[in-house]
């Protein structure tokens, strides 16, 4: 451009370069203090004494038991909430019925309840002072301070994840595809399997990922119902707490680093899904 007096004009819907620079720098500084440094510190602390110590901390029997318990709990809780998420989003997205908005609010409820309260409600339901607890105990069934209680609390806390992801997605897609399939003679199950499911598979996968991340990482609710019996009812996050409180920092951060890795993998998959299949595949709030 030969006429340099015009250079000072910029797009009226845009900020100047220096303004942008300041705002981006400010955002990055904020993120550094609140996101990046904490994340980096987990790995730095975990490897402070080298790979050998790190490995030792993970193969130690109590840590290993915690890892196994965490995987078991997630393996039960996630499929349960997956089935619920599919059923609830089918009912909500494909039909118009009274009380729908209220039902959606109820599904969101666990998001806004303190995890501690999510655990507490089961303590009250199955604890020694309740009606159910002693009765089940007389049949030899332990809920509280045992694996079933941990599963229940985890299911409570991760309850909305799949449904929350699927409901807006299925609402956007409407009912046209299903009606077309049904008019072509498909049965209800065939319609779901061949028409609906392929449309929502990426959203579903994303919901499952988030549900799983939360299920493995849940702390508050599980800590209330678990009783923290080492080697028996200790999940990974609870084990992190115990190690930390014993000032066994390296071991605490070693176990924590596994959980952080899980979070990073979840985020990476999420980003991949978004890039690959568009923002529609993964969105919504959690």
């Amino acid at each position: 451009m030969s006429d340099n007096r015009r250079i000072s004009f910029r797009n009226p819907a845009d900020e100047s370069f220096s303004t942008k620079l300041v705002l981006v720098a400010l955002s990055l500084a904020f993120l550094a203090f609140f996101l990046f440094l904490p994340l980096v510190s987990v790995f730095v602390e975990a490897f402070r004494e080298g790979w050998g110590t790190y490995e030792e901390a993970l193969v130690e029997p109590d840590a290993w038991a915690a890892i196994q318990l965490t995987l078991t709990v997630a393996a039960i809780a996630v499929p349960l909430n997956l089935v619920f998420g599919l059923a609830a989003s089918w009912a909500i997205a494909k039909f118009e019925f009274k009380g729908k908005a209220f039902l959606i609010t109820l599904i969101d409820l666990p998001f806004s309840i303190s995890p501690v309260i999510s655990g507490l409600v089961y303590v009250l339901l199955f604890g020694s002072g309740s009606l159910l607890g002693p009765w089940l105990k007389s049949y030899g069934i332990e809920i509280l301070f045992a694996v079933p209680g941990i599963v229940l609390a985890t299911v409570f806390v991760t309850f909305p994840f799949v449904a929350r992801e699927l409901i807006p997605l299925m609402q956007d897609q409407g009912t046209g595809d299903e009606e077309a399939a049904l008019s072509l003679g498909a049965s209800g199950w065939q319609t779901f399997w061949y028409v609906t499911l392929p449309n929502i598979k990426w959203g579903l996968l994303y919901g499952v990922l988030l549900c799983n991340a939360r299920a493995m990482g849940e702390f508050g609710a599980v800590s209330v119902v678990s009783g923290r019996i080492r080697g028996l009812t200790n999940t990974m996050p609870l084990h992190v707490e115990i190690l930390y409180n014993e000032y066994n920092m390296v071991a605490a951060f070693a176990v924590a680093s596994l959980l952080a890795l899980l979070a990073l993998v979840t985020l990476a998959l999420k980003t991949f899904l978004e890039l690959r299949f568009g923002a529609g595949a993964a969105g919504g709030r959690h």
Binding site: S27, L28, L31, F33, L35, F36, L37, P38, L39, S41, V42, E45, P115, L210, A213, M216, G217, E218, F219, G220, M236, P237, L238, V240, E241, Y244, M249, A252, F253, A256, L259, A260, L262, A263, L264, T266, L267, A268, K270, T271, H286
Partner: peptide, 30 residues
């Protein structure tokens, strides 16, 4: 950065907890 904004959703709270505690402790980095 866009992807990292979701980190608090995905990172177990106990992990965030001990990371913040050690970072912002009087002898921590920050």
């Amino acid at each position: 950065i866009d992807a990292m904004v979701d980190l608090p959703f995905a990172l177990p709270t106990a992990v965030a907890g001990i990371a913040f505690a050690s970072l912002y402790a009087p002898n921590g980095w920050i």
